[in-house]
Amino acid sequence: MTQDPDTIISVHDVHKWYGNFHALKGIDMDVKRREVIVIFGPSGSGKSTFIRTINRLEEHQRGQIIVDGIELSHDVRNIEKIRMETGMVFQQFNLFPHLTVLQNITLSPIQVRKWSRQKAEEIAMQLLERVGIPDQANKFPGQLSGGQQQRVAIARALAMQPKIMLFDEPTSALDPEMIKEVLDAMVELAKSGMTMLVVTHEMGFARAVADRMFFFDQGQIVESGTPDQIFKSPKEERTKLFLSQILSH
């Protein structure tokens, strides 16, 4: 299998069924290093399911997914390798409520990467600095606002020093006044050259940093292109309709 060395994620004809429901109907996508991809579409269109197949939180039943040269299969070691290279940020934050912010961030580097506690904590503090909340290190997640929790989640994912970051609707569970602080952290990350796949409806974010956008509907990619193409001259009726709905309100 020959592959462009610049391609970090290669997805070919991926299908997924939940029982009889055909959730993903043949997804093809190639992502280059340092690219920022925005995936959008109506709810139930399969966009979250798709992004979760990339680190195997969901299993695909047909097709091929290659992440950083490793093919996702039933081989547990491959799955673990890929999960070490991909960070994920969830809609519901999913911080560990029984651990402090610092422990949330350092747990995996210490246990999986086998770093010393000291090194892990140093890097954790740098990351908290980067997302703007170094003073919250010793609090528990329950003591933070939603925006702060999501920024901790970003720092936690980054602490594993992943090559790819996956964002699954990172701002959908936030109060409006907290969306900006999370988006700012994500924009900064995008500009630093991280490869990112972002499921979001924040079109301002897409316009600012996305290299390409993919519109999902009913388990398929309906349309893809640069933000300019998508916003100014969408080809498909469904894309136009959806954009008019989310941009008009």
Binding site: G87, M88, Q92, N94, L107, S108, R156, M160
Partner: peptide
């Protein structure tokens, strides 16, 4: 979500 977050971080 707690299982998913742990798995996503590479914990076995």
């Amino acid at each position: 979500g707690q299982f998913e977050a742990a798995h996503a971080l590479g914990l076995n």
